[in-house]
Nucleic acid binder design. Structure first.
Lengths: 416, 416
DNA sequence: CGCTATTTGTTCAGTGGTTGAATTAAATGG
DNA sequence: CCATTTAATTCAACCACTGAACAAATAGCG
């Protein structure tokens, strides 16, 4: 069984609530609070916070500690009198997530522990357009093996993996279309079938989940950035993708194909787009379009260095580049206005290649939003660059694995 | 405490899971299955379906019957051998919801029982633009009193009320802006404070919830139409609003202001809109714009009869009207394409004034969607007229009350 | 007509997990 | 050094679900 669904059920039992579900839910509740707390909470604090009894919290914590999900921190210096509290933190030597990414000009792998720390990270730079999918995935497996070794060396146990791809992924984990990579109907699970560690199925969840890169990048922001909430994360790579986070959960759409913001029409009668439509956002704010408008079409810059080069030139005051960025910002602003009018989001994150360009994209975006968003007067919309850099998708992928464990620790505890 | 949040928690405990939560969740689970079942299920069938024991289901059902939420139906004729099953149905004489609506040219009230049947419905036609908010709400209270009397007469107990308003509503139930009604910062709860039955707070939920009309109309579709799923419900009234239903739950946005589709830019350099932007959808597909394009600007038709008049003329082959509808359909198609690209929805419902115009709006919409939605090739998008007519919002409002009871029956059971 | 097979619904002892109060543990402060 | 305070554990009680046995109600068959 392969799937690309990013479940994160927030401990909501869809089916029957049996006897044991009670403990299952409270394990998730307590572990979630420990993960979200700004400083290591005590059992007593958790009891007060959750409404459970101290007795129950103790029992639940005992299970979590036995399952290597939580460890006790050094007693914190306390203010007043009383027995000192023993702080609880997410274990740094328990389960970890393996994050993988295939992109147009690099492969990436990383390991993230329960606490969200990146414990290993490696990138393999190469133009993957001329390479066959099987070959590209073969190289990725080698990168994954290195990451696995690094995890072992640090006492971490890989609990699962997620792979980000710049394209549409179906429920079976197949890449239906990745235009910038030149992939179409690539059966990723099959191609990886020869590599056992990545293809096991544990506890109903496949060891490897394949997902859209923009979705995973948005997830990375969820950890790194300010806590849960609702935001739109725009990834400006060769294409333009977006991840939508609603109330702290990634929204994936009916078929997992949400966030295809690159082909939202900006000017319905504008220049034709290769998608078949006209005047799509990608024609105004896609990397190639910006480069063309900036007079750098022939420069043949690698995709991953182009944004920095543009930023340099803009910094230096290059009029053509400044104008190109302004136009891109306007187009992004028009599109984002649509999204905010529709979904009432309060934050927009500029990720991927847009992050370094944020200083120049932001002002025209905000101007458009201010003009076009009906509720802008009461609730200002924040536009900010992403907290993580280029390989956010890999980190988000690894993070999605550990987040699933935090959301449903029983799955992990049952394994031991 | 007033609030406009449409909670519908789908039995997901956010906080602590106490001892009694178990029963709470299973009450919701069983009641939900009874509500969703196509024919009255037996206890045994519910046990098989939910995974609970027959003993547990019996105990749960006993509670539900004692609370007047469920009654036993006549034993169904069975096929094979065995003791005949006693079917369980939602009680027709238990709690019911009161739905209210204030619109530009009418007030409406209705009563919906647990099973979703409309048990009372009344409309008061009047142009409410020249009337003060306090006066309008006063008339509404009289309508509500009639509805309450009708409910009593039928043995129904009103368990709460919801009010739909064509504008932006904040968390306090205040109408921040209802442009077509001419309301701004109207403190609806305060104005209704003199009418006790509508202003009680029971079990943490206010007796009256104020919400956007488009959101409630979308909810009505959720009951009447094909079961839960994800869709966009577009209400074409004087303004254009939309309700977004994701996975069977209304999505309300960070502040409850989602669905402001009327001011999504179609042509960013198009004619200025009163919202301050340019080329908004409302300028192309709003009722006034369609009438103007159809050459009926001076006809001064009441807003509620205009769509039918347009449909008549279109039926008769009036070229100007057909052209106007085509243009509106194109604009709607462009906008819907944006929404579908963003959210990956598979269904769009044309509600309110658009419902009778669906035969003419659909074809250009589908053409635009086909051209502009990246995933249209794999997953066709359905565009269909709404199941309910003009006063869908009132029915949806009443339905939201009973749906909340079905989603969390403990709230109701605790009252008795 | 009576017996058996079959399915529904209830009863009841058993169990898992939470509760609440009492108890122990470990610190501060006078 | 002892009273005070807060943290964590222990334990009997209790609530709700489980599983199996049992009672109820029907169809089919000889």
């Amino acid at each position: 069984m392969w799937q690309c669904q990013e479940v994160i059920p927030t401990a909501a039992p869809a089916g029957a609530v049996r006897q044991g579900s009670l403990r299952e839910l409270n394990l998730a509740l307590v572990l979630g609070r420990i993960a979200a707390a700004p400083r290591p909470p005590s059992r007593a604090a958790l009891a007060a916070e959750t409404g459970l009894t101290r007795a129950t919290v103790s029992a639940v914590v005992e299970d979590l500690v036995a399952g290597r999900l939580v460890t006790e921190a050094e007693p914190q210096p306390r203010a007043g009198a009383g027995r000192p509290a023993r702080g609880l933190v997410l274990a740094g030597d328990g389960p970890a997530g393996l994050g993988l990414e295939v992109n147009v000009d690099y492969l990436a792998a990383c390991v993230v522990d329960l606490a969200g720390e990146v414990r290993h990270h490696s990138v393999h730079r190469a133009d993957l357009r001329p390479v066959t999918p099987a070959d590209a995935l073969g190289r990725l497996v080698r990168l994954a093996a290195d990451a696995r070794a690094a995890a072992d060396a640090q006492g971490l146990i890989l609990a699962g993996a997620a792979l980000g791809v710049p394209g549409l992924v179906d429920d079976a984990g197949q890449v239906r279309l990745a235009p910038n990579l030149g992939w179409r109907d690539v059966p990723v699970p099959e191609l990886l079938a020869e590599h056992p560690p990545l293809t096991e199925v544990v506890d109903g969840v496949p060891a490897l989940v394949v997902d859209n890169e923009a979705n995973l990048a948005a997830l990375s922001e969820l950890h790194a950035g300010a806590g849960p909430g609702s935001f739109l994360h725009i990834s400006g790579e060769v294409g333009i993708g977006a991840g939508i986070v609603l109330d702290g959960a990634l929204y994936r759409g009916a078929r997992g194909w949400s966030g295809e913001i690159g082909h939202i029409p900006v000017r319905p009668d504008g220049p034709p787009c290769r998608c078949g439509g006209r005047g799509c956002l990608e024609r105004y704010a896609g990397q190639e379009s910006i480069l063309a408008a900036a007079g750098l079409a022939g420069a043949d810059l690698p995709a991953d260095t182009a944004p920095d080069r543009l930023a340099e030139l803009a910094e230096a005051g290059d009029e053509t580049v400044l104008h190109a960025l302004h136009e891109a910002g306007v187009a992004l602003g028009v599109t984002v206005s649509s999204v905010v009018n529709l979904l009432d989001l309060d934050t927009v994150v500029l990720g991927g290649g847009y992050a370094p360009l944020a200083p120049w994209l932001r002002p025209p975006m905000l101007a458009e939003i201010d003009r076009r968003v009906l509720t802008a007067a009461w609730s200002p919309v924040t536009v900010r660059p992403a907290a993580l850099g280029a390989t956010a998708a890999a980190v988000g992928a690894a993070g999605s694995v550990v987040r699933r464990i935090i959301a449903r620790p029983v799955g992990w505890l049952a394994r031991l």
